[in-house]
Simulated assay, not measured.
Amino acid sequence: MRTIPAQRITEAVAALCIEANTHLPADVEAALQAARASEPWPLAQTTLGLLCDNLTAAGEAGLPICQDTGMACVFVELGTDVHIEGDFEAAIHEGVRRGYTDGYLRKSIAADPLRRGNTGDNTPAAITVHLVNGEGCTITVAPKGFGSENMSRIGMLKPADGVEGFKQFVVDTVRQAGSNPCPPVILGVGVGGSFDKVAYLAKKALLRPLDVPNPDPYYADLEKALLEEINALGIGPQGFGGRTTCLGLAIEQMPTHVAGLPVAVNVSCHVTRRATARL
């Protein structure tokens, strides 16, 4: 049995909050640069150039990539042979508090969904824990801005809707969102499970690097087909037109009830942020 002090969890989460908000993952940045090089529409290419310049400026100055530093979504893969010495969830919340305070990141969490009021430190975090074998602990912080989160959708389709109904739901989500989520977007798509589980699958899909396809060839082909169909919509960067509406998408699937076809699309903008530490 391996022991990890709660203080180490706090320190890791604090550092990840700052890193995720100031540096774009390599796969996302590469996709953005590739889109800039291949985009034929002049206005769209110029817009993509400005987005790339923003990334460079943020990295050089150590400033946030986006003014919306998001809700801190924290994903943990915790080994069953690990003992956390101290309060695990409290350690994560404290890490978010320190990261957003020490990093001078915007605090955006309302204390109550209806009565509002800012918590002042961007806590609480949205924590998801998955138990795995071994003595490891992997933490990923994925700040999620709500300009794109508000464009996300969940649908309880009928089994008879099939793959065509599934594809239409995904494409319609992007069409209805238009320029609101600050395109080009990245999509996390969940299919299967239950009402609550499919939303988790969609969020989890955003953690997969853009250059890593679904391991199931059937879903890998679906990812490619959907990407082509979405980019044919012509929404383009910031809604100015062009063929770069979506930089990439990932599908996560799981078994579901015979009478159901749950689908969820988690929309993220071009600054899809995540940072990971392995303790």
Rank of each mutant, 00 (worst) to 15 (best):
L201T: 05
L55K: 06
D53R: 10
T119H: 09
E229D: 14
Q67P: 00
Q238T: 11
D87H: 00
L114V: 14
I127Y: 05
V212N: 07
K144R: 05
I84V: 15
V174C: 13
Y100I: 01
P25D: 06
V170F: 14
L279V: 09
S179F: 13
E252N: 15
T245K: 10
T56C: 08
S38L: 11
A37Y: 12
P255S: 14
K144Q: 00
L48R: 05
C52L: 14
G99K: 06
L249F: 05
T173M: 04
P124Y: 09
L157P: 00
S268Q: 03
S38N: 09
E164A: 15
G134E: 00
Q253A: 10
K144A: 04
T244V: 06
G162S: 01
L51F: 10
P262T: 03
G155H: 13
S179W: 14
Y219I: 06
T80G: 11
L187T: 05
V96A: 02
E228N: 12
Q238L: 12
M151L: 05
G241Q: 12
G70C: 02
A30D: 08
V96C: 03
C137R: 05
E252Y: 09
P159R: 03
A160P: 04
C269I: 00
D68L: 02
A111M: 12
A225E: 14
P209L: 03
C137Y: 09
E135N: 09
A34I: 05
S179A: 15
V13Y: 07
R106E: 02
A57K: 12
D121R: 10
L227M: 11
V171T: 15
S152Q: 02
V171S: 06
V171Q: 10
L226M: 04
K158S: 13
A220H: 13
N133C: 08
T276Q: 11
N150D: 12
K197D: 06
D221L: 12
P237L: 03
V174N: 15
G236Y: 01
N150I: 02
V185A: 04
L16P: 13
L226C: 04
L48Y: 01
L201H: 11
I139P: 05
G95R: 10
G120I: 12
L43C: 08
V185T: 14
V82M: 01
D211G: 05
G99I: 03
G236K: 02
Q7C: 07
L48N: 00
T101M: 07
Q176I: 13
L24A: 03
K107D: 07
A177F: 11
C269M: 02
V13C: 11
L43V: 15
V171K: 08
R208P: 05
L50Q: 10
D81L: 08
G147V: 03
P213T: 02
A91V: 00
P262Y: 03
